[in-house]
């Protein structure tokens, strides 16, 4: 038996919106301590990893580990039934064939229920090695979204360079070349801060198209954390207050 109730259902709605363009069918892993999922996009360029702790739920019960295979496209359709102020409850029996999703609005007394059919997904579960990232950049999520969006109109690829003084996003395309450079900024206004933690400089290239997809999660968190290490995938991390973390891994491009 699994049951989890999230008071701020909007968070779940936003999570589904933030991953639905990247992954299609996903195994959701339920454990007594929380909910997690890991999935790659169809072209194996990016990987999504979500971890939600039971502590963030108003009510949480999972007697055993369970795997719920879900079509994210269909889950997104069901989530459209939820009002932004709804509480969301997820329920599944042992050996379940469907996931029951309940939306409740205590103010308007409206309740919506949907039984989403589960599917069997044969997906690879990958082990992500512990990595000590040599460059970690914490940046306002709205600002990072805007930089990626605007640079994408100029080039498909961005080169990210870090050093102790700045992080630089540079592009080169038919239009020309240029860069956005952000220095360490620990101003009093927290939302303006850019925090650089660089032990070793990194220079890598990435497909901006994917960064734009990841940035849909910027509504979940005021800050985006970029973790970089030469020869390793970029991690774009969004912390979800009191609940968990949504991470996207993106393989770097290499010059032939």
């Amino acid at each position: 038996m699994f049951e989890a109730k999230l008071t701020e259902g909007l968070i779940l709605k936003k999570i589904v919106e933030s991953i639905k363009d990247i992954v299609t069918d996903v195994n959701i892993d339920i454990s007594p301590s929380g909910i997690s999922l890991q999935a790659m996009d169809s072209s194996h360029v990016a990987l999504v990893s979500l971890n939600l702790s039971m502590d963030g739920f108003e009510h949480y019960r999972a007697d055993t580990n369970m795997v719920l295979g879900v079509s994210i496209a269909n889950l997104a359709k069901v989530m459209k039934l939820a009002d932004n102020n709804d509480q969301i409850t997820l329920q599944a029996d042992q050996e379940a064939t469907h996931l029951k999703i309940i939306f409740e609005n205590p103010k308007t007394e409206r309740t919506t229920e949907f039984n989403l059919n589960l599917i069997t997904i044969d997906s690879e579960h990958l082990a992500i090695p512990e990595t000590e990232y040599s460059s970690v950049v914490t940046i306002n999520s709205g600002e990072f979204s805007k930089i990626c969006k605007e640079l994408f109109s100029l080039s498909e690829t961005v080169q990210i360079t870090t050093n102790t003084d700045y992080v630089q996003f540079s592009v080169e395309g038919e239009v020309g070349s240029g860069q956005v450079r952000l220095g360490h900024n620990d101003s009093e206004k927290k939302e303006d801060q850019t925090i650089l933690e660089v032990s070793e400089s990194v220079q890598q290239q990435f497909a901006i198209r994917y960064l734009n997809m990841f940035n849909k999660a910027s509504t979940l968190s005021s800050f985006t954390r970029l973790c970089l290490h030469q020869e390793q995938p970029l991690v774009v991390e969004f912390k979800i207050d009191n609940l968990g973390v949504l991470k996207y891994f993106l393989a770097p491009k290499i010059s032939d």
Binding site: M40, H44, V45, A46, L47, E124, H125, L126, A127, I128, P129, T157, Q205, A207, Q232, P233, F249, L250, A251, P252, K253, I254, S255, D256
Partner: peptide
């Protein structure tokens, strides 16, 4: 020319 690497190259199969 720039090639896109496969994310699976970086992780281990469980």
């Amino acid at each position: 020319l720039i090639g896109q690497q496969d994310i699976k190259n970086f992780f281990l199969k469980k």
